[in-house]
């Protein structure tokens, strides 16, 4: 009897799994996105750029309101990036993408803080909860120079000391003047 139930249940389980796998496969391949230009970035801070991405509707039905945006992660400091600082926080909305059609979008960016990043383009839509991202491109914002540590240390000590000496000097001068008799 147990063997009978097992034989009945197991096929149902396999069928269920394959349905969900098929569903996942269907969603992830319904939209595809890839960065067309640039393939990599190496610039100094302050340079303006643009990321061009191609978004494709792989389904047989039209899609509406696709939100396309940049995501960046700092792989040196291991943290995400506030895209507002890079003027890259405004997404592009594709109002309608017809079946099996592609659209190219341009996303502006200003390369600001020196570090190494991975940049990718992501598409989200109201119609489903999955997020589709492109492969990332390497972005290297080159630091102009490093701070001169000894100079900083010298300045940090010298300025307060000089001011203290100035205060002492001025106080002594006034006391000396007050002690002399005006003739």
């Amino acid at each position: 009897m147990k063997k009978f139930y097992l034989l009945l249940i197991l096929p149902l389980v396999f069928i269920g799994l394959s349905i969900s796998k098929v569903s996942a496969q269907d969603v992830s391949s319904s939209i595809s996105v890839e960065i067309t230009t640039p393939s990599s970035v190496e610039v100094y801070p302050g340079v303006e750029g643009a990321i061009t991405a191609n978004v494709t509707n792989n389904t047989s039905s039209d899609m509406t309101n696709l939100i396309v945006y940049i995501t960046m992660v700092d792989v040196v400091k291991n943290m995400t990036v506030n895209l507002e600082d890079y003027s890259a926080d405004v997404p592009v909305v594709i109002p309608e993408l017809k079946a099996n059609q592609s659209e190219t979008v341009t996303l502006p960016i200003i390369y600001v803080y020196p570090s190494e990043y991975h940049l990718y383009v992501t598409v989200a839509t109201k119609d489903n909860l999955d997020i589709i991202s492109s492969p990332s491109i390497p972005v290297n914002i080159i630091t102009l120079t490093k701070i001169d540590y000894p100079l900083v240390k010298i300045t940090s000590i010298a300025v307060p000391v000089l001011l203290l000496l100035a205060f002492g000097f001025v106080s002594i001068q006034r006391k000396r003047r007050n002690m002399t008799i005006q003739k």
Partner: peptide
């Protein structure tokens, strides 16, 4: 000036602050 000195020394000695870009 003491405050600015403290801040400047912080930029070169404290880990989190030293990771900041110069600008």
């Amino acid at each position: 000036s003491l405050m600015l000195s403290g801040l400047s020394l912080g930029f070169i000695s404290i880990k989190e602050l030293s990771l900041m870009a110069q600008n």
